[in-house]
Write a protein that binds this DNA or RNA. Structure first.
Lengths: 346, 346
DNA sequence: ATGAAAGCGCTAACAT
DNA sequence: ATGTTAGCGCTTTCAT
């Protein structure tokens, strides 16, 4: 099964796909168990038999049956990635990073979309848990105790969700938000609003707290509007609410929302950044070419995906608790583009 | 395992996760096979026993072991989706559509990224084939004979790749390209270039042919530049090559490339659309808010994903050959935004 | 170092 | 309608 039809040296595809270790055993005159060993723990078998077996496997175009392997060994070589909305560009990067790292380790990716519902998330998690070696929960909406319980029974890594006892990768947007506030304050803004995302989002609260405290440091008070859905569509309502606060600048829960806001502001004839500055979060695909290009907190999204997988694999191998750090904080930085500028003179 | 910790009415989570049909059988006093039946084909079992069994299953928090089920039944309830680049926004829609439809049918999605390599695609396909009930190949780079061979042994649906004997969903961009050419010609353009995508892409050739023939219909000759990678990065080289042809308008292989071109043109101080018009393909996320917003061929991407799954499921159920249409053509339409305008006077 | 045998959890004939 | 009996393909003791 190579592209040009040269499956094994000198042999045409033979009984392709239904070859079992028994066939190999028969062909090589050894027991099936020996074949199994030769294939999964080559060091536990005599060199010459091992090579005979491996050659036969190649000849017969043997592909191990993962279900059977899983059934007896308990390992599925598959990892589930749960995202709350497969449509959100933020997750694309995550998916990609995870996929990369998994492939490198020879594992498969089961993608699950929880549609932003804690109930569905929990349901689906229950369904897949037995089919995977571990789970990566991106921006989980699950209550803390559920999360802890799940993590006790199954290797789990969360992304952007920090719960005691659960290893996690968190993108340090709060730190970035400090930078964003400094940036805006230095541009003369005094009325800065946080445009909040979905209610169950842990990251959302973390970001709001960061904004508030950064503001407080300057003796200012953060304004909060929302909650809004983490989508472009929600941007219209958000923009209107935002204008109503009298803020001269805002930091939004994520870029999707920011892009939606930009759109609505243009629609209402309000210029960005001369009349109002907008700062997003994440730096997703599109943030650099929307109009005006968005000032945002650049998050190492793919890296987060890769990191989550690495941590999970580490946990799978180590078995014990001697695993490294419980939570990995990934730094963000402010990327200034054209949606932020000096505060308007009043 | 419900979000708030109320797993079964009145019962705390019990032996969670390792409950088998035997436990249920023991509890209800029936044979394991009866439990199996009650759970998978409820109509084949007496109503009262069935209900007892179902209640017990719920009480014990039973979750079927998919590997075991797969091993004995041959069905994995999983479908693989192979994409050539999980990073390409075009696939996001596909993934999403597929995921939706699969969930509705209770199947899981195994996502595979082939990194644009035919060899890797073939390899990975070999690995997953036994773990899934069927496969959806998005923009496959596999040679025709390989594809035919694979499809003979496993339910396969291709997307944007038409090969005899393989059922497929194809987005009718060629038809859209006709519309695009009409649009451009009516704006006075006479020199229109096609900015070609990756060499192994079937869709790429189809689009080029469509452009050439649409041009011919007006007694004009299509210009071709490329090939280029289907990415924004490739847009720079593409823009430069494009300008060199003297064309006043272009249609690009996809939006990613078009957005890259737009960027490069701006960089070189060339105004779109007064100096040159750009038309993309697909209408991906971002096409409507880049600058200027992109005139493009709107493709029903999510629908394509859903359709592919439907066709696959149909094939899985019907088993026989009485399945419907071999290839589903999905219409596209031209969405005119601001990147196309009247040809410049010479 | 290798073989024999048991079994992972489930489904699917075949009986009853 | 339900129970009995074999496996599915593999890994894993336990012998040898």
């Amino acid at each position: 099964m190579t592209p040009e039809g040269a499956p094994a040296p000198g042999t045409a595809t033979r009984r392709d796909g239904r070859v079992t270790i028994n066939d190999i055993a028969a062909l090589t005159g050894v027991a099936a168990s020996t074949v199994s060993r030769a294939l999964s723990r080559p060091d536990r078998v005599n060199r010459v038999t091992r090579e005979r077996i491996q050659a036969a496997a190649r000849d017969l175009n043997y592909v191990p049956n993962t279900q059977a392997r899983a059934l007896s060994s308990g390992r599925t070589d598959t990892v589930a990635l749960l995202v709350s909305d497969a449509t959100n560009p933020f997750y694309f990067g995550l998916i990609r990073g995870a996929q990369q790292q998994l492939r490198a380790a020879g594992l498969a990716l089961l993608l699950v979309d929880t549609e932003d519902s804690p109930e569905l998330e929990n349901d689906l998690l229950g369904k897949v848990r037995r089919s995977v070696d571990g789970v990566i929960l991106a921006a989980s909406r699950l209550p803390e105790k559920t999360l802890t319980a799940v993590a006790a029974e199954l290797p789990v890594i969360t992304i952007n969700r920090n719960v005691p006892g659960v290893r996690s990768v968190v993108i340090d947007s709060p730190d970035g938000i400090m930078q964003a506030v400094e940036h805006l304050v230095s541009l003369g803004h005094r009325q800065i609003a946080y445009v909040a995302g979905p209610p169950f989002s842990w990251a959302n609260e973390a970001r709001w707290r960061a904004l508030r405290s950064a503001m407080a440091r300057h003796g200012l008070t953060g304004i909060r509007v929302g909650p809004f859905g983490a989508s472009r569509r929600s941007g219209s309502a958000a923009a209107d609410a935002l204008l109503n606060t009298g803020a001269t600048a805002c930091v939004t829960f994520n870029d999707l929302l920011a892009i939606g806001i930009l759109h609505r502001l243009a629609e209402r004839g309000i210029d960005v950044p001369t009349e109002i500055s907008v700062v997003g979060c994440d730096d997703i695909f599109g943030a650099d070419f929307c109009s005006p290009p968005l000032t945002t907190l650049t998050a190492p999204i793919e890296q987060a995906g890769r990191m989550a997988v690495s941590m999970l694999l580490e946990q799978l191998d180590d078995l014990g608790e001697k695993t490294s750090r419980r939570t990995q904080l990934l730094p963000t930085h402010l990327t200034v583009r054209r949606s932020s500028g000096p505060a308007p003179r009043r």
